[in-house]
């Protein structure tokens, strides 16, 4: 579905590349999470995976990005957006401003795609139901909460039926409730077989639901594998990426000698329970 080969990209007027020699592939139906410190290149990678690099940001791009079979450099952005949808951090700036109600806002993308009017109602209703916004269809997009606005952005992109969905830290500006609702919607999508690539800081969530995690540092891929492999790796600390609470507590227990020094650290609640069950009596008495 996505193939990146040797991608090196420098923003205009920037001193050094934001991405260095990045190569990865994403298969259809995969849910890939991208983690990294600020300025590690997460957003840049998201833009490159959706064609905004090079078309919107210009700059110097080496290597290639194939999105659903289309080469991102030679295909116009207006076509790329029909196969790769992007949701980014700021909920308010994703409101187009062109329409006065939530319902019409979702329809906006369909109108631009030239979708037949007869199809629109069903597609809009489906998108709103997927993100849980059916009840606010008549409200102004500006009257929604941040979390609702972010779900509206998601619905507006989903209704266009992209083949790949890219999300750049979508919960960064949301409160815990808003984040929870957005994650729930994304999880529903993933379970239906959508191809999702999401840059995120909230490691505990992606530990539970992502199929694969890619860690970026200094514009390069430093880790790429299953969540447990990547999120328990000591390299994360090295690159200022942080770890889940479960991993931190387990690492402490391991450092205290409560488990063998090569025990695999947990990244989710279930794994943590399994990790601590055998050692709990020992831990209490230590």
């Amino acid at each position: 579905m996505i193939r990146v080969e040797g991608l090196t990209y420098t923003y205009p007027f920037a001193g050094q590349p934001a991405l260095r020699d990045v190569s990865l592939t994403v298969a259809a139906g995969e849910f890939v999470a991208i983690v990294g410190a600020n300025d590690s290149g997460k957003s840049t990678l998201c833009y490159a995976l959706t064609g905004y690099i090079p078309h919107h940001f210009h700059g110097a791009m080496l290597g290639s990005v194939q999105i659903a079979g289309m080469d991102s450099r030679s295909t116009p952005l207006a076509e790329l957006v029909t196969v790769a949808g992007l949701v980014f951090q700021n909920p308010v700036n994703q409101i187009s401003g062109a329409r006065f109600t939530v319902y019409e806002e979702v329809a906006f993308g369909l109108e631009n795609l030239g979708a037949p009017r007869a199809e629109m109602a069903a597609r809009i209703d489906e998108a709103l139901a997927l993100v849980g916004l059916e009840g606010v269809a008549d409200r102004s997009p500006y009257a929604l909460s941040g979390g609702q606005q972010q779900r509206l952005a998601l619905a507006s992109i989903l209704t266009m039926a992209p083949q790949v969905l890219v999300l750049d830290e979508p919960t960064a500006q949301l409160d815990p409730l808003g984040s929870r609702d957005l994650f729930a919607a994304i999880h529903r999508l993933s379970r239906r077989g959508a191809t999702i690539i999401m840059a995120e800081h909230k490691l505990e969530w992606i530990a539970r639901f992502a199929d694969r995690v890619i860690a970026l540092a200094g514009g390069q891929v430093v880790l790429d594998g299953a969540p447990r492999e990547v999120l328990a790796s000591p390299l994360l600390e090295q690159h200022a990426i942080g770890r889940t609470r479960f991993t931190q507590v387990a690492a402490r227990a391991r450092a205290l000698g409560l488990t063998s020094s090569d025990a695999l650290l947990p990244v989710t609640l279930e794994e943590a329970v399994d990790f601590f069950r055998p050692i709990l009596p020992k831990a209490i008495n230590a």
């Binding site: 980014f88 409101i95 631009n112």
Partner: peptide, 11 residues
């Protein structure tokens, strides 16, 4: 940023 959102909606 809104320009990016407009592109994303195939405007």
């Amino acid at each position: 940023e809104r320009a990016i959102a407009l592109e994303a909606r195939a405007f």
